[in-house]
């Protein structure tokens, strides 16, 4: 890993759904070894940005590179945590099996996971505090536990960059704590983590850098410089209520 090429570089990227542009001319270069929050209102294209970066959506224009190369050549460096609602949890399988899926990319075609892979999957479950749930049928897990299983699946990939789509939405305190813990550990290992995030209250606490997104990139950079009232008003418009004295966000209507 050279320090010169940024983990993620987005050049003039646009994404469109049914010919309607959803993201316009995003240009961004990420710092390395940081936890980066992707912030913006509903429908601002936060998840779209992640999906386009991972090649799950076609780009209408522009270029994405991971450590200087196209994503298709750098898959092994990238871990993905999709939104929990994106799958049917009544699938006949257990937590360990879902985490093992994180190793399918390294296994390649036809090879079945062996006991060493199971150990790695268990280790990933342990990191999110879910070791004792390994054999539990996935529909029997609470929402937060399902989220942690998804996180463990990405951890098992042992990637260099992680993309997490709304991991904090609708989870219990134990899960929130586990996720924050994982974010810290990843940062200590100089890994770069992108997190789509909704709760403005916790932004300064969780993220070193932020990307403020509303169809275009409003601002990006270190949280304490960029996460300002002015920028937030640019991003959220009039929907943001701000306490005048404390300069803290109260709520978003």
């Amino acid at each position: 890993m050279t320090n010169k090429t940024p983990p993620l570089s987005i050049e003039n990227v646009s994404v469109a759904y049914h010919r309607k542009p959803v993201l316009r001319n995003i240009t961004y270069q990420s710092p390395e070894g940081e936890c980066i929050g992707i912030i913006g209102p509903n429908g601002a294209g936060k998840s779209t940005l992640i999906k386009a970066t991972l090649g799950l959506l076609p780009l209408a224009g522009g270029e994405v590179s991971i450590y200087g190369k196209p994503y298709s050549q750098q898959r092994k460096l990238v871990g993905y945590v999709p939104q929990r609602e994106s799958v049917d949890w009544d699938f006949p399988t257990n937590a360990l099996d879902v985490v093992l899926m994180g190793l399918y990319g390294q296994l390649g075609w036809f090879r079945r996971p062996k006991s060493e892979h199971k150990d790695r999957a268990l280790e990933a479950l342990r990191k999110v505090g879910m070791e004792s749930f390994a054999k539990r049928q996935i529909s029997q897990l609470s929402g937060g536990q399902q989220q942690r299983v998804f996180l463990a699946r990405a951890l098992a990939q042992e990637a260099q960059i992680y993309f997490m789509d709304e991991p904090f939405v609708g989870v219990d305190a134990a899960t929130e704590k586990a996720i924050v813990q994982v974010l810290h550990e990843l940062k200590e290992q100089n890994k770069t983590v992108f997190v789509v995030h909704h709760d403005l209250q916790t932004v300064s606490e969780y993220f070193d850098s932020v990307m403020l997104l509303n169809l275009r990139l409003i601002a990006s950079g270190p949280t304490r410089e960029v996460f300002t009232t002015e920028n937030l008003q640019k991003t959220y418009g009039g929907r943001l209520a701000i306490l005048p004295h404390t300069n803290e966000m109260l709520s978003i209507r």
């Binding site: 999709p82 799958v87 399918y104 036809f110 990939q157």
Partner: peptide
């Protein structure tokens, strides 16, 4: 049975499978 693992991935989480490169 040869493609069991890949078909399982397809049925459970196709998008994730795509991100893994399948």
């Amino acid at each position: 049975s040869i493609f069991f693992k890949e078909l399982k991935l397809l049925c459970f989480d196709a998008n994730y499978g795509k991100s893994l490169g399948f």
